[in-house]
Amino acid sequence: MESTRTDLALLAVRVVVGLTFLLHGLDKLGDLSGTEQGFDGMGIPAPAVMAPFVAVLETIGGIALIIGALAPLFAIGLVINMLVAALTVHIENGFFASDGGYELVLLLGVASLAIAIAGAGRFSVDATLRIAQKVPGYPGGERRMLA
């Protein structure tokens, strides 16, 4: 029973965080030149490279989190993405997102970190393919063996 609750919690977090990244990624992809200009204005290095990279990472990473496919690996990329966003853009604006602060990127980054550590849970493509059992050290394998 405890395992089921944990897996449902992971599913809920994955879906909400994944959907948020997916929508932000699609927004960036929908106006890639605007995203590039925005990155340039924020001082992000190599905006012509970073804008499409971040847009694709957020889009594909969001889908990966939602379905739980290689979720810990994509989650690590999204943690790094949120850390860079916090340090380069948001930290100087304080905490609250309404002021341009780091509130949202902190929340998304820490939730992604939790997925990277815990794994995708039982209700995921990773579990269906038994990746944690096939790849030594893959997140989530220890919990499955104990359950």
Rank of each mutant, 00 (worst) to 15 (best):
E2G: 09
S3K: 06
T4Y: 11
R5C: 01
D7Y: 03
L8A: 06
L8E: 02
A9M: 00
A9F: 03
L10T: 05
L10N: 08
L11K: 08
L11C: 03
V13Y: 09
V15I: 15
V15E: 07
V15K: 06
V16W: 12
V17W: 00
G18S: 10
T20R: 01
T20G: 00
L22F: 07
L22H: 02
L23I: 15
L23H: 11
H24L: 03
G25Y: 01
L26S: 13
D27C: 06
L29S: 06
G30P: 10
G34P: 02
G34M: 00
G34K: 01
G34N: 02
T35K: 09
Q37L: 06
G38M: 13
G38F: 14
G41F: 08
A46K: 10
P47A: 05
A48E: 10
V49M: 12
V49C: 08
V49T: 12
A51Q: 11
F53S: 14
V54T: 04
V54G: 02
L57K: 02
E58K: 01
T59Y: 02
I60R: 05
I60C: 02
I60L: 12
G61Y: 00
G61L: 01
G62H: 00
G62Y: 03
I63F: 11
I63N: 08
L65A: 05
I66Y: 11
I67V: 13
A69K: 12
L70P: 12
L70E: 13
L70C: 14
A75N: 09
I76G: 04
L78R: 01
L78S: 01
L78H: 00
I80M: 07
N81L: 05
N81R: 07
N81I: 03
L83Y: 07
V84L: 07
V84M: 10
V84F: 04
A85D: 04
A86V: 07
H90D: 00
I91F: 14
E92D: 11
E92H: 10
N93M: 05
N93I: 04
G94C: 02
F95W: 08
F96Q: 14
S98G: 01
S98F: 03
V105D: 12
V105L: 09
L106Q: 09
L107M: 11
L108T: 05
G109P: 03
A111L: 15
S112E: 10
I115D: 15
I117Y: 02
A120K: 12
G121H: 12
S124Q: 00
V125S: 11
T128A: 14
L129W: 15
L129T: 08
I131W: 13
Q133L: 09
Q133R: 13
Q133V: 07
K134G: 06
G137K: 10
G137E: 07
Y138V: 04
G140F: 07
E142V: 10
R143W: 10
R143H: 11
M145H: 10
